[in-house]
Amino acid sequence: MTDEQLQQWVEQISLQYFKRPFLHKATFNARLKATGGRYFTKTHHIEISPHQLETFGKDETEKIIKHELCHYHLHLLGLGYKHRDAAFKQLLQHVGGARYCQTLPDREQRKPEPYRYKLQCEACQLVYMRKRKVDPKKYVCGKCRGKLRLYEIT
């Protein structure tokens, strides 16, 4: 599907479900991997992930478009257009949009980093595990206010 076809599809969904025209630009953005789409409040443009269309089909992508159009129309009407707003939740449910998009199967799940550093108190031997390197001179032990020493875990 091209950007022009997407534009026509978004305009048609807007008229059919919202009874209002979509007067701005809708495009695909292949960099969107963790999100299905975006609405820009300054330009009022909408971007949709082509990966969602390829992976989950037109039905799921239509729900994402409805979600972004909820942001669009509510924002232009001066109503609550954010995810937490009651007006947004109500309109989204009314038009049948997706609250969240599905996770792409090829998207790697973030694994928690193992601890790479250990801070140990020289006085009471209490150990603090850290994923990132910190300067032990800037901190003291929370238990006894003793001096800390940094060790790298290999």
Results as ranks from 00 to 15, higher is better:
Asp3Glu: 12
Asp3Thr: 06
Glu4Tyr: 10
Glu4Trp: 12
Gln5Pro: 00
Leu6Gln: 02
Leu6Tyr: 01
Gln7Gly: 06
Gln7His: 09
Gln7Ile: 06
Gln8Gly: 06
Gln8Ala: 13
Trp9Asn: 05
Trp9Asp: 04
Trp9Tyr: 14
Val10Glu: 01
Val10Asn: 05
Glu11Cys: 09
Ser14Asn: 11
Leu15Cys: 08
Leu15Glu: 11
Gln16Gly: 09
Gln16Thr: 15
Phe18Thr: 07
Phe18Tyr: 13
Lys19Thr: 12
Lys19Cys: 13
Arg20Lys: 15
Arg20Trp: 14
Arg20Gly: 06
Arg20Asp: 15
Pro21Ile: 07
Pro21Glu: 12
Phe22Lys: 05
Phe22Ser: 03
Leu23Ser: 12
Leu23Tyr: 09
Leu23Glu: 12
His24Glu: 07
Lys25Tyr: 14
Ala26His: 09
Thr27Asp: 09
Thr27Ser: 13
Thr27Met: 14
Phe28Lys: 03
Asn29Cys: 14
Arg31Val: 04
Arg31Ser: 15
Leu32Gln: 05
Lys33Trp: 05
Ala34Pro: 00
Ala34Gly: 08
Thr35Gln: 05
Thr35Trp: 00
Gly36Ala: 04
Gly36Met: 07
Gly37Trp: 03
Gly37Leu: 01
Tyr39Val: 02
Tyr39Phe: 11
Tyr39Met: 00
Phe40Ile: 00
Phe40Gly: 05
Phe40Ala: 07
Thr41Lys: 11
Lys42Asp: 13
Lys42Ile: 08
Thr43Gln: 03
His44Gly: 02
His44Cys: 04
Ile46His: 01
Ile48Leu: 14
Ile48Thr: 00
Ile48Asn: 02
Ser49Trp: 00
Pro50Gln: 02
Gln52Ala: 09
Gln52Gly: 10
Leu53Asn: 06
Glu54Cys: 03
Thr55His: 06
Thr55Leu: 07
Phe56Lys: 01
Phe56Met: 06
Phe56Val: 04
Gly57Ala: 13
Lys58Val: 10
Lys58Tyr: 13
Glu60Arg: 02
Glu60Met: 06
Thr61Gln: 01
Thr61Pro: 01
Lys63Gln: 05
Ile64Trp: 00
Lys66Ile: 01
His67Ala: 04
His67Ile: 02
Cys70Met: 09
His71Glu: 08
His71Asn: 03
His71Lys: 03
Tyr72Gly: 03
His73Met: 03
Leu76Arg: 08
Leu76Ala: 02
Leu76Met: 10
Gly78Tyr: 06
Gly78Thr: 07
Leu79Gly: 06
Leu79Arg: 15
Gly80Phe: 10
Gly80Glu: 03
Tyr81Ser: 11
Tyr81Cys: 10
His83Leu: 12
His83Pro: 13
His83Asn: 13
Asp85Met: 12
Ala86Leu: 14
Ala87Met: 12
Ala87Gln: 15
Phe88Asn: 08
Lys89Cys: 12
Gln90Thr: 13
Gln90Tyr: 08
Leu91Met: 15
His94Pro: 00
Val95Arg: 04
Gly96Glu: 10
Gly96Ser: 05
Gly97Val: 03
Gly97Pro: 04
Ala98Met: 04
Ala98Asp: 09
Arg99Met: 11
Arg99Ile: 12
Tyr100Glu: 11
Tyr100Ser: 08
Cys101Tyr: 03
Cys101Gln: 02
Thr103His: 11
Thr103Phe: 06
Pro105Phe: 10
Pro105His: 12
Pro105Met: 14
